[in-house]
Amino acid sequence: MPLSERRLDAFADKHAWQIPFDTSPRHLAGPGDARHVTHGLAAAGWTTVSDPLSAEIVMASPDHRYRLQFDPQSATSAWWRLRAASADNEHGWYAEFGELVP
């Protein structure tokens, strides 16, 4: 069900203080919802490998090369961590994102 302009505006007004840079349209930014990411990855074949009773979510790609970790209780400012394992001719890498990533 699509959201009305009024609801999108209300969401943007509520979360505007959390957006440290100019984003347009404003409803595309904000604190986000982990389910927007995790549900999409699950539909693409990623599996959850973390404890279902934990606030932390860890998912693995179908080929097990990539891992995504969402930890809203992290001691650092990084709530999201994406890691890629080394492959034949490629180095591994990782990226970290804070809580305000849309």
Rank of each mutant, 00 (worst) to 15 (best):
W17R: 15
L41V: 01
F70P: 04
V49L: 02
S24H: 09
V37M: 01
Q69W: 05
S74T: 12
S4V: 05
A95R: 06
D22S: 11
R83F: 08
E99C: 07
R67W: 01
W93S: 07
R65D: 08
R81E: 08
A42S: 08
S77R: 15
R26Y: 00
S54D: 10
D63K: 04
D88C: 10
P25H: 10
A60N: 07
D88Q: 13
R7T: 13
S24L: 14
E56S: 01
D88I: 14
G98K: 07
P31C: 13
V101A: 13
A84S: 11
P31W: 15
S74Q: 08
P102R: 05
H36S: 11
T47C: 03
D51M: 00
S24V: 12
A87I: 07
H91M: 11
Y94C: 13
S74N: 09
E5T: 12
W17Q: 14
A34H: 12
R67Y: 01
A87L: 08
H64N: 05
T48F: 00
G45M: 02
Q69F: 04
W80I: 10
Y66R: 11
Q73P: 05
M1G: 12
F97G: 11
L8H: 02
H27E: 12
W93L: 03
E5C: 07
F11Y: 14
G40K: 13
N89Y: 00
F70N: 06
P72Q: 00
Y94W: 15
W17G: 10
S61E: 03
H91Y: 08
R81F: 11
Q73I: 07
S4K: 04
G98C: 08
A29R: 05
S50F: 04
A75T: 13
R35V: 01
E56K: 09
E90K: 06
V49E: 03
V58F: 00
H64G: 05
L53C: 02
K14D: 15
G98Y: 03
P52C: 03
S54P: 00
V58E: 13
Y94M: 15
E99I: 09
W46V: 02
E96A: 11
S50I: 05
G92H: 04
D71S: 06
A16V: 06
L41H: 01
S50R: 04
D22K: 15
P20K: 02
R83S: 11
L28N: 14
D88S: 13
A16L: 10
P52D: 05
P31Q: 14
P31A: 14
D51S: 06
T47W: 04
F97E: 07
R35Y: 02
P102N: 13
S77I: 12
E96C: 09
S50P: 02
A78E: 04
S74L: 08
R35I: 02
